[in-house]
């Protein structure tokens, strides 16, 4: 759609359900995927709660949007950076997160994990390498 390819970074720092920010951030990611930009998502602070497995909103009566993360690979959104310190501070580990995979077209469609656990310093480096930062 566009000749310019920019690095877009979505900063997710809010927990799901208590506010709409996580859900509406994901809506931007899905629409943004059609623009063929270089997209990464960062999950830090309470944002890591968005990826916790076992979310069930039936009794709450609101839409459970966590399965949408697993579909991101189909939209070529395959870089989900999760901050290790944010997990640690919340008593979480990588095992508590949903398994989110994508098929790597450059590697004979091998299944690979989209979630990459990074340190706080690495998260800062990733943020510092972006053209456009969308903050939620």
């Amino acid at each position: 759609m566009s000749e310019t390819v920019k690095k877009f970074f979505y900063v997710n720092r809010k927990a799901p359900y208590g506010t709409i920010f996580a859900q509406e951030a994901l809506e931007v990611v899905l629409i943004g995927a059609a623009f063929d930009q270089d997209v990464s998502l960062g999950f830090l602070d309470d944002g890591v709660y968005q990826l916790v497995k076992g979310q069930d909103t039936k009794d709450l009566g609101v839409k459970n949007f966590s399965p949408t993360f697993r579909a991101l690979g189909d939209y070529d959104v395959t870089k989900l950076f999760v901050e290790k310190e944010s997990l640690d501070e919340r008593g979480l580990s990588a095992d508590d997160l949903d398994e989110i995979m994508y098929e790597d077209e450059d590697d004979d469609w091998a299944e690979k994990p989209s979630i990459r656990i990074v340190s706080r310093a690495e998260m800062a480096d990733i943020m510092a390498d972006q053209d456009v930062v969308l903050s939620f």
Partner: peptide
Amino acid sequence: TQSLLSCLNHAKDGD
């Protein structure tokens, strides 16, 4: 909120 703390933890020299 922890926003300032989180910001301080991620800001790089020169920011």
